[in-house]
Design a protein around this nucleic acid. Structure first.
Lengths: 338, 338
DNA sequence: CTTTACATTTAAAACGTTGTCAATTTGTTT
DNA sequence: AAACAAATTGACAACGTTTTAAATGTAAAG
């Protein structure tokens, strides 16, 4: 069954085996151009024969570089974030980075702990979706150590001078409301999410703008906050339907909430898409298969992720320009639910 | 705006500031018991004052330990795997490990490359869902270096002596078929996935066992392989419904395929759950919101992940017992689609 | 007042690599 | 043959920790 725990072969041993100096061997593994083809092959052969494994940890320690980046998201459960993760991961992969993953589950403490861990691991940069209401201190600290941080999908509480990649949530909210108004709805609810997140306030802002512009009355009882989960959606729709004048259209904080909303409607014998129009946000892949299929605002999480990764890459390469804000435009996707 | 790129404070500097030796400072940061309370506090104070950051990379290099583990999955897009990821991640987090993530996208080469990378990063262990048909050489190699590897959800081609955590796919296939037979279906299709994966062959095996036991005929044209994606499901159901004697019940390789199958049925004006019964596999959260809601075989990916993480933790702690196989039992979840 | 024992603390070597740079070898051109 | 360029070397000092074995200080025991 092979021996146990053979100890690592070092570059030193490779060099000796190939009959060259350690310096030369080092240049070979790093692909230096001024090494003759001959010696390069000699060394590569020895590497293969001895089963040498490059020690990136030692190399990074010595060279003050880092080929790892930290990725911090709030919940992997939400397909929006898994798509985001795919986008980031794929783009970073292409550039040869290795990803250290962290999940905050919306806890500020956990977020700080994660950032601290990433610091301890000497990551070269961080892409994160911040917890609503968390303080920018820790991010500031990373930047002070020269570690670039890209915020994605969510901003921090205040308008901090950080790089940010996201979508235009105000526009998204407006588009959603305009669509429902165009469909003839006069009483429209906004369900799910919490007002402490920048995403929520932005979407609400756009929503309200469209409502006002159409000259509709703004009824505070049509705004129901709840966790951005399926269960949260179920509860929110139940609450709002008890209103003496229930809405005929609802705009949901995101698609997961929308799935709960539609479930809740069905439970009460109300047919979503017919009796009540439902519009979601994010356009997660599943929303096409819901029934009725969900009208939603596409937020392109994978593109967001890829853009964030590109930006981070540029920063790590030494781009020192001032903070960039990349705002993608969302798009309305009309389906059966409205 | 603070200075740029302050260089890291080292333990050396902390020691000097606290008036102790570097060794003592090191013992303090590691929480050694035989350090007097006095000096401990002195050092901790200096750490705080100087803003010292522990360098785990350097520490791991020296101590030959590793607090990172590699996690390799095939596709983050499938909710089954995101749930798995959640389970693994949460459990490892609790034990203080940091996760390095990799995705193979079902490419054996990518898988080998990822394993090589993890080796280079000196991970302490690996949890992976292997690419179907990939060779166990690389895994063997890791184990030779004393790095434990846990296979999860998928086995390697042959019955290798590796630790494995998965569910009983044969039982799952049988349960699904039995359920459909019990509902009165005589012609049942098995759609999606490819025969090169152990998961597929196992599910098919159980499926066939039940068919035979019920004395039904086995029609090869009712087995349609396709990518395990929504699109794959759409194509598979279209193909099989062209059959002169189309099935009245279908068992899908997984829930994602099932979602495609139901979509494909609707496109043809056939009502899933009424005209044709559909059963999925995995019980991804979304399957409850499909319409009709999907009858499926629950595979508990999060539990799988947690178990795998626990097992890995034990291995990393030095548990040298021979390869363990942990097989969880799947459960039938009946909903509207059957 | 010395010895023994014990708890703390320490100096120096190690981990596996890269950076530096002057010195050497080899190959090519004038 | 000399002059030049290109490729390779050797030696040593980093990088920021942990490890080892040895040294210190102090209190209890003789």
């Amino acid at each position: 069954m092979g021996r146990k725990k053979q100890s690592r072969v070092t570059l030193q041993e490779v060099a000796k085996h190939a009959g060259v100096s350690r310096a030369t061997a080092s240049l070979v593994v790093r692909g230096s151009p001024n090494i003759s083809k001959e010696t390069r092959e000699k060394v590569l052969k020895s590497i293969k024969e001895l089963g040498y494994i490059y020690d990136r940890v030692a190399a990074n320690l010595r060279s003050h570089q880092s080929s790892t980046v930290g990725l911090i998201i709030t919940e992997i459960g939400n397909p929006f974030f898994s798509e985001l993760l795919v986008g980031v991961h794929e783009a970073l992969d292409k550039e040869g980075y290795t990803v250290i993953l962290g999940t905050t589950f919306d806890s500020p403490d956990k977020q700080d702990a994660l950032l601290a861990t990433m610091l301890e691991y000497r990551v070269g940069g961080v892409i994160m979706s911040p917890v609503p209401g968390s303080s920018p201190d820790m991010v500031e600290r990373l930047k002070q150590w020269g570690i670039p941080v890209i915020l994605v999908a969510r901003k921090m509480l205040s308008e901090e001078p950080f790089d940010y990649v996201g979508i235009d949530n105000v526009a998204g909210g407006r588009i959603a409301a305009e669509h429902l108004i165009e469909q003839g709805h006069r009483r429209i609810a906004f369900l799910g999410g919490f007002s402490n997140s920048s995403v929520w306030t932005d979407r609400k802002k756009g929503f309200c703008e469209a409502i006002e512009q159409a000259g509709l009355e703004m009824d505070e009882s049509l705004f129901v906050q709840s966790p951005a989960t399926r269960q949260g959606g179920i509860e929110a729709i139940k609450r709002v339907m008890q209103h003496p004048q229930p809405p005929t259209g609802v705009f949901c904080y995101n698609d997961v909430v929308a799935s709960g909303v539609m479930l809740g409607l069905k439970e009460q014998g109300i047919v979503p898409g017919k009796d009540v129009a439902v519009v979601g946000f994010d356009n997660i892949p599943e929303s096409a298969v819901f029934s009725p299929s969900l009208t939603t605002i596409a937020a392109f999480p994978d593109r967001l992720g890829a853009k964030a990764a590109d930006l981070l890459h540029r920063r790590m390469k030494g781009d020192e320009e001032e903070a960039k804000k990349l705002i993608l435009q969302p798009e309305l996707v009309v389906r059966e639910s409205s």
